[in-house]
């Protein structure tokens, strides 16, 4: 399958709502753009996902809202209203989330060391996901797009 290339004459996969995106916004947007551009298996999720995902990093007091719009992502500084899911956790766990392996059926792997660490943080309340239960398929899709593994 041909890899998607981001060129100036194509619309950008990732745009920033703010004229000065925060470092965290740039990093998440850049990570997702690089992932989707270089990994064809992530394109389907990116093209079909419509959801507003908040991510708040508790130990730096910063967050972003990722507005997935079916093939396009707009990254906002801070948490915006109308979010489908909001993830609240520390910087280390954000890195662990992006290192979750994707296993059979496209499900995140929670039985290896990183997955167990993420699951333990969820159980201990160090990782909070608002809107998890009604949106578990959305969360899985976001995890697949976000994962660098």
């Amino acid at each position: 399958m041909a890899r998607r290339k981001v060129t100036s004459d194509q619309h950008r996969l990732v745009e920033y709502a703010d004229s000065e995106p925060s470092a965290f916004a740039s990093m998440l947007g850049g990570l997702i753009e690089a992932n989707v551009s270089s990994r064809p298996e992530k394109e389907h999720d990116f093209d079909s996902l419509v959801a507003s995902v908040g991510m708040w990093v508790t130990d730096i007091d910063e967050g972003v809202t990722l507005d997935f719009m079916g093939g396009r992502l707009v990254v906002h500084n801070g948490l915006m209203a109308g979010r489908t899911i909001t993830i609240r956790t520390d910087a280390d766990t954000v890195m662990s989330l992006s290192n979750l392996k994707i296993g059979p059926l496209g499900l995140p792997v929670y039985y290896d060391a990183i997955g167990r660490g993420v699951a333990a943080k969820l159980l201990r309340g160090r990782l909070k996901i608002e809107g998890l239960l009604p949106n578990i398929l959305t969360l899985n899709a976001v995890t697949r797009i976000f994962s660098v593994q």
Binding site: L31, A34, E62
Partner: peptide, 17 residues
């Protein structure tokens, strides 16, 4: 890095991995 106090240039998925 998340706060922009350290500025990173390079392939993000690789560094995150």
């Amino acid at each position: 890095m998340l706060q922009g106090k350290l500025k990173l240039k390079g392939d993000l998925p690789t560094i995150v991995r």
